[in-house]
């Protein structure tokens, strides 16, 4: 082997291939669809997705807006990050609020402490219809959940926004075909083949900015259903629950009242990568109350049109 080919092989490691595949999907969907949008939660996966989208179309601006479905139960650090990250790309930010769906009487207010997680689906589908979006990029990964493991990279949604796992379009090779009829739309998942570890390694390689709550910090937490919840406006101690100040970080970012923290001292990316490499509990299992609801919680939400 010549030095040159060796060098080329070295340069194309698995992160390059994952990056390339994601960029390929982003470009393909933008070319085939009329009005795409990128769903951005401010979590690490959507951060990577936005970063890749900026690369896919550089030096031009993003050819689509970025949309946040705001439950009103966010961590403030994540909202700060959202504004910072979207502004850096120059993209237009659309914020669709669950509070508006509540005010319009489309969904019932679960109260200040209740979870709005499931209500987001209504807000999301309405926002897709109102804006006429025919494709929505999401940062979901197949290693997250057994229903996601079954989903196509380009996933078809009918006129009601539903996913039908029995009737998925065949998806051969890398021939992603994104044609839909009016009223239907696609979800596109460029990070399908990435694992949690890949995401962290990529964030480290690209020296990306992230919400501060991903890194270990001291915080008041309480233990509920075997999960460490951050005490704050959406989580208050119930009788018998003890508030403790501990060093924690978050592995995923969702609503403040259904996302658990993990006990951790990892304050840098390389310390996080070390932790993730030896973790023995899955990301969602450790930290997401919304998935613990039933055996097929994710599938049921996805069928209704959830992310």
């Amino acid at each position: 082997m010549t030095t040159e080919t060796l060098q080329t092989l070295h340069m194309t490691d698995h992160l390059d291939l994952l990056e390339s595949h994601a960029i390929f999907i982003l470009r393909e969907v933008v070319a085939e669809c009329e009005r795409p949008v990128l769903l951005f939660s401010g979590g690490k996966d959507s951060a990577v997705l936005l970063h890749l989208a900026a690369k896919a179309f550089a030096p031009q601006q993003l050819p689509f807006p970025v949309m946040h479905i705001d439950t009103g139960q966010n961590f403030p650090e994540v909202l700060d990050y959202r504004d910072r990250a979207v502004e850096a790309t120059g993209a237009r930010l659309v914020v669709a609020k669950v509070q508006d769906s509540i005010d319009q009487g489309k969904v019932i207010d679960p109260g200040p402490m209740g979870s709005r997680n499931r209500l987001q689906t209504v807000t999301l589908l309405d926002a897709i219809t109102e804006n006429g979006f025919d494709a929505a990029f999401g940062g979901a990964r197949r290693d997250e959940d057994k229903a996601r493991a079954k989903e196509r990279i380009l996933s078809f949604r009918d006129a009601f926004g539903q996913w039908d796992p029995r009737q998925q379009r065949p998806e051969l090779w890398q021939l992603y075909q994104g044609k839909v009829n009016p009223g239907e739309h696609l979800r596109a998942f460029p990070l399908s083949d990435w694992t949690e570890l890949d995401i962290w390694q990529y964030i480290e390689r690209e020296q990306m900015d992230l919400p501060t709550i991903y890194f270990a910090h001291e915080r008041d937490v309480l233990l509920r259903d075997n999960m460490w919840l951050a005490v704050g406006p959406f989580v208050e101690a119930r009788s018998g629950e003890k508030i403790e100040r501990l060093s924690v970080r978050f592995r995923t970012v969702g609503d403040a009242n259904c996302t658990g923290a993990v006990l951790s001292e990892a304050r840098t990316l390389s310390q996080i990568i070390d932790e993730v490499s030896v973790a023995n509990v899955s990301e969602r299992g450790a930290t997401r109350a919304d998935d613990r609801f039933s055996e097929t919680a994710m599938e049921d939400r996805k069928r209704e049109g959830y992310f």
């Binding site: 197949r142 290693d143 057994k146 493991a149 079954k150 796992p165 055996e295 097929t296």
Partner: peptide, 29 residues
Amino acid sequence: TDGLRAEREQGITIDVAYRYASTPSRKFI
């Protein structure tokens, strides 16, 4: 791998499941 409700009810695989694994010598999809 049979993670869908219908798959578990019927004891049959309906659609492809993707899993990611890694051993000391190789990564697998």
